[in-house]
Design a protein around this nucleic acid. Structure first.
Length: 646
RNA sequence: GGUCAUGUAGCUCAGCCUGGCAGAGCGAAGGUUUUGUAAACCUUAGGUCGCGGGUUCAAAUCCCGUCAUGACCUCCA
């Protein structure tokens, strides 16, 4: 038997649903709140017989006496052990423990509670700060107990790993290493509040969820995330069983969606001044620069052996760009120097259980822009430009900074104290409170980083855009420039992904749509990302030639348009177009042949109207203005298309 | 790796508890129909019920093993 004893100020738990077949039947699914109570999280293990139960009972009584607390909650908690008893038997043992405790402690004022067994439960509690408030113990036939005591809030670096953090170079994966973190809310006016002392407003639910996700590790999930269903239904992407998990297949619609996003982000970075380069996707594991890396960051990369050479697949664009930059001759006059690559792909061998749909992959496309700066002053000014760039990229893609995104900013205490004004100026651009994490020491290669997090339908946070101030890698890679005084210096490197992984953007757009569905609203993807922007449906087959004329006219105006020439009823064709989320449907009958006007069914406005041909073209052009264009990536006649979406 | 769940037609799933002819809808193919704003009608094809073993007169169904997938794993006993 393994247990965690916790003395808490309060505990709240809510049974969500039965997790196993043998879950105990319960009537009351209300949230329970208990205050000033000892909570014992326990796992019943195979071979827990009388002696062990005796030990546990004695220990529990002793503990309650020691800390002078007279209420107790028994909380079945499977995750303490890898050697669990079968559910039925475990429940019997729990029942017995509960009864024995009640009998033993009956004469006093003790109160004994027990949380339901076999249920998925939402759990929240606050542990008291005294030295005896947290103990873990093991009861078995060999070692009687092995208590470990601690009440310091430690944050494991592994636990807070920022997946797809574009510069994944950084994240130490060693679980032993911990560093002290403090959590705050930083408001646009610079006001700083400790997380514990902050009262979240109703509109700040997403921010609250972000904290929950990061600190309380509240990640209760009941089902597959909704975007997985949508990505298949819409024929965008799917799992590929023949590959490694986390390596997806993208159907024509998905490929077009990705191409457009890739082109869009690349163009925005180019306008900002990033120079696009291309670097290899695999590297020699024994190259000196790589080795120093791996020593510090036990990696999760794909390894390949080719002849006698050991190679790994890149997990970020950093190596390629750094190795390239190292060979440049750089003067201070050339700085800031900005290099950009959109990797297709970056690879990370995430643990199999961590992979989810398009949210977390093993192969993903990551825009990655590094700026090499002369000094901190230049870095800060460049940093602000990239901050603005990232905001505009997300907004133009169709995400709402106010509703969809929560910002987190993290830095060392030292950096903050020297650059308060700079930090505050970033936050004030967001115009709402952000999550702030402050580290006592610098463990990472950067002194400051921020991310924009998308909060999905399950309250899970995924980072999209991010930027970092890196003061370590220039030296490691021997990237230098000659300063005004003729001396060799190492630049500061900024690591920015203005959008985050392209696949994750698709994930965010789909989750946003799923939210609309949940709210009873019409889900949609931005018009400029739709493979079919306009669907033409003839009322009769004889009108197909006329429809083709309209289609060609739209096509000449760079509008993606297709024609439903199948032998189906009009209603059915409309229905299918609706289920494909097509924004505009044009119905063509005799009336339309005779006039210059076309009949439009507008899915977003939810209305039908007739409109002049040119006005319609302008209506669409105005909505996709400034966005990249690619021709439709499926047969223009639906009768020629195989069925792809399921 | 652990816990739990799932695996039946191209897709979504029912059947399993309580053993007795392999099912439905969608999709596909052929035909009829030529449609005015969210599913026309008829017909046909389509299966190693993940795989292996066991129990039984009889197994998709019960038991054991195994493989694959999914969710979770300092979130859900």
């Amino acid at each position: 038997m393994r247990i965690l004893q916790l003395h808490v100020d309060y505990i709240e738990y809510t049974p969500i649903k039965e997790e196993i077949v043998d879950a105990e039947p319960i009537v009351d699914k209300e949230k329970k709140r208990l205050e000033n109570i000892v909570v014992i999280l326990l796992s019943v293990e195979k071979g827990d017989e009388n002696l062990i139960i005796e030990d546990f009972l004695n220990e529990t009584k002793k503990y309650l006496d020691t800390i002078k607390c007279n209420s107790l909650l028994l909380y079945p908690y499977a995750h303490l052990s890898a050697n669990l008893e079968k559910p039925k038997k475990a429940m019997q043992i729990l029942d017995r423990i509960e009864k024995e405790l009640k009998i033993n402690l009956k004469d006093s004022t003790y109160r004994i509670y027990r949380a339901p067994f076999g249920w998925t439960k939402q759990l929240e509690f606050r542990v008291k700060g005294h030295p005896m408030a947290e103990n873990s113990k093991t009861f078995d036939n060999v070692s009687k107990s092995e208590p470990s005591i601690g009440n310091e809030k430690l944050v494991s670096l592994d636990g807070r790993q920022d997946d797809h953090d574009h510069a994944g170079v950084s994240q130490a994966l060693s679980a032993e290493k911990t560093l002290k973190s403090s959590w705050f809310i930083l408001e646009p006016n610079g006001l700083l509040t400790r997380y514990e002392d902050y009262n979240f407003r109703k509109t700040e639910n997403n921010l609250k969820n972000l904290f929950k996700y990061e600190i309380l590790k509240n990640r209760t999930v009941e089902e597959q995330p909704p975007h997985v269903k949508l990505m298949r239904k819409l024929g965008i992407a799917d799992y590929e069983p023949a590959s490694d998990s986390g390596n997806m297949r993208y159907y024509p619609k998905g490929r077009l969606l990705k191409s457009l996003l890739e082109q869009f982000v690349s163009r925005k970075v180019s306008e900002y001044g990033g120079l696009e380069v291309e670097t290899p996707i695999m590297y020699d594991s024994h190259h000196p620069s790589m080795e120093s890396y791996f020593n510090r960051f036990p990696a999760r990369q794909y390894n390949i052996k080719s002849d006698q050479k050991e190679l790994f697949l890149r997990f970020a664009a950093c190596f390629g760009q750094f190795l390239m930059t190292k060979d440049f001759q750089i003067s201070y006059k050339n700085l800031p120097l900005k290099l950009y690559e959109l990797t297709r792909y970056s690879f990370r061998r995430e643990k199999s259980g961590e992979l989810v749909g398009l949210r977390r992959l093993r192969a993903f496309s990551m825009p990655d822009c590094h700026a090499f700066c002369r000094d901190l002053e230049q870095a800060k000014s460049e940093f602000e430009k990239r901050f603005d760039l990232s905001i505009s990229v997300l907004e133009e893609i169709g995400l709402d900074m106010d509703q969809d995104i929560e910002m987190a900013i993290r830095f060392t205490k030292e950096f903050y104290e020297n650059n308060k004004q700079f930090v505050n100026s970033l936050v004030s651009k967001i115009g709402k409170p952000v999550m702030m994490e402050m580290w006592s020491d610098r463990f990472f290669y950067f002194t400051l980083k921020w991310e924009f997090n998308f909060l999905d339908n399950q309250g899970k946070a995924s980072s999209l855009s991010t930027d970092q101030i890196d003061i370590e890698n220039a030296e490691r890679y021997d990237i230098s420039f000659i300063d005004e005084d003729g001396t060799k210096k190492y630049p500061i490197i900024l690591h920015n992904s203005p959008s985050g992984a392209i696949e994750r953007i698709i994930f965010a757009l789909l989750e946003k749509s799923a939210r609309l569905i949940k709210e009873g609203k019409t889900p949609f993807l931005p018009l400029w990302l739709m493979n079919t922007q306009v669907r033409i449906i003839p009322i009769k087959n004889e009108l197909i030639p006329f429809c083709e004329k309209i289609r060609n006219e739209l096509k000449d105006n760079l509008i993606r348009c297709d024609l439903d020439d199948r032998d189906d009823s009009l209603s059915k064709k409309i229905r299918e177009a609706e289920t494909e989320w097509i924004h505009y449907i044009i119905i063509v009958g005799e009336k339309e042949v005779e006039s210059d006007r076309i009949s439009v069914r507008d899915r977003i406005k939810k209305e039908n109207y007739t409109i002049d041909n040119n006005a319609f073209i302008q209506l669409i052009r105005s909505q996709i203005k400034g966005k990249p264009y690619l021709p439709i990536n499926l047969q223009e006649n639906l009768s020629k298309r195989p069925r792809i979406a399921s």
